[in-house]
Amino acid sequence: MNNNDAPFLKMKGIVKRFGALTAVDNVDLAVDRGEVLALVGENAAGKSTLIKVLTGVYQADQGEIFIEGDKVEINNRKDSQKFGIEAVYQDLALVPQLDVPGNLFLGKEPPKKILGGLFKVIDNKKLEEQTRDILKDNLNMEIENFNDPVINHSGGQQQSIAIGRALASECDLIVMDEPTASLGVEEIDMTFEIVRRLKQNNVAVIFISHNLEHVFEVCDKVLVMRMGERVGYMDIEDATRERLVSLMVHGRYEEEKSEKSVANKTV
């Protein structure tokens, strides 16, 4: 860390093209630890593409990424994991047939040696302990029967498990892609609790959502995208429903002429 004042993540001038289509057009983004940044916009606004650039699924055509002030290269999923970036995908990316511990630590199961160190196998006991810890400490939830396949669990629990999976890797930044879509009221509340907890634990969160009420509920800042461009960036206190909708749909808000300059100043 060469700059204590730098935000945890800064993306600058990101451009991603698919042939003739420019999916992300010169977008800046910043989010710090303990901060929840909402990323809003209509379908095909470029949110997912931007996130995939961040997680290394896509490579940007232009632009730079800084982690704690240092310029970094993120060329694949492994790179982003190395920098503590985890994503909870819209389709949850869980393996429906695996149980809760199997999903939480997929790819990171604790090993144990058997036959005098000849083979390395999964330490299932430790795996279950770690699972209980994560669920209790970070998510404040107790799941009974966590050896059932996750498909047996409710949508909200699956959401929690997906978030728990990001936490299990002790990440610094979690991207949550539509975490509240297709959840019941109670389960949505539960998700908000988890986000607040993450914030308390000094984790940076990027919260992608269609639902502005949910954005107002948990987010600190809002970044609005439209047709690949960043059209708005503000503190949540400055945002109103009308303003966000107008930005999402029209790319501008009448009472806000100097939108871009404000944003630039903030970053």
Binding site: R77, L98, G102, L106, G107, E109, I122
Partner: peptide, 25 residues
């Protein structure tokens, strides 16, 4: 099947290949 990485990851890739790839398998 239950205790090795081979068994666990076979189930993972058969259950949700994308997810397994995202998990770095």
């Amino acid at each position: 099947y239950n205790n090795t990485y081979f068994g666990r990851y076979t189930a993972a890739l058969g259950g949700n290949r994308e997810s397994a790839i995202l998990a770095g398998i």
